[in-house]
Design a binder for these strands. Structure first.
Length: 187
DNA sequence: CCCTGATTCGC
DNA sequence: GCGAATCAGG
């Protein structure tokens, strides 16, 4: 695929509308978002603003190394003995209630009422959920539990989380509700 | 990891 | 001019 006037025009239009490069690429077809961005730059409309005289970052620094924050406080609650000797404590085969490491579990909706819209979106999400098991959960899979933990019919949503938060978009919606909406609903 | 745009550089 | 690879950020 090449940049015909036709396609360039679509590019300009969509970019002007604030569409993302990937969206534009998808629309045009045959090009990647990189191609779109590259073209955008060559066309000189990288800055969506009109005539910003912003000198921007004229001079770039090239730090030879990546500082990459020290971080990782990581709270380790258990285990402090480096030498467990030979005392292979029998594994307790019945942790009645399985709690995912560290992460706070959401209050189960159970009998509680949630916003109809949010509830609806959750129902829909559950249909395309990835149904992950506990081990499959990662830092960025939605940790919203579905079903009864006591049965086989239990899994975690597993969809991509919404940055930072432990849940996907839909579940964030039902997990973090303003108290205003749940007020007076009971009565 | 999902995404965004920005830049570089071989083609 | 092109765009994949890379970089930098959310």
């Amino acid at each position: 695929m090449s940049w015909t006037d036709d396609r360039v025009e679509i590019l300009k239009k969509m970019w002007g509308e604030g569409k993302s490069a990937s969206q534009i690429a998808k629309e045009l077809g045959g090009v990647t978002r990189n191609a779109v961005i590259g073209k955008v730059h060559r066309l000189g409309l990288s800055n969506r603003s009109g005539g910003a005289t912003a000198a921007k970052t004229a001079d770039k620094e090239k730090p030879a190394a990546k500082p990459k924050a020290p971080e990782k406080p990581k709270v380790v609650a258990t285990e402090s003995d480096p030498k467990p000797a030979n005392t292979p404590v029998k594994v307790m085969p019945r942790p009645k209630l399985v709690v995912t490491a560290g992460q706070p579990l959401p209050p189960q909706p159970s009998a509680n009422e949630i916003s109809p819209e949010a509830l609806a979106s959750v129902r829909e999400v559950e249909k395309k959920a990835k149904k992950l098991s506990v081990m499959e959960l990662t830092e960025r899979t939605c940790k919203w539990p579905v079903g009864d933990p006591a049965t086989e019919d239990f899994w975690f949503c597993g969809l991509p989380v919404q940055s930072g938060k432990p849940y996907c978009e839909a579940h964030v919606g039902v997990a973090f509700q303003p108290m205003s909406s749940r007020r007076d609903r009971k009565r």
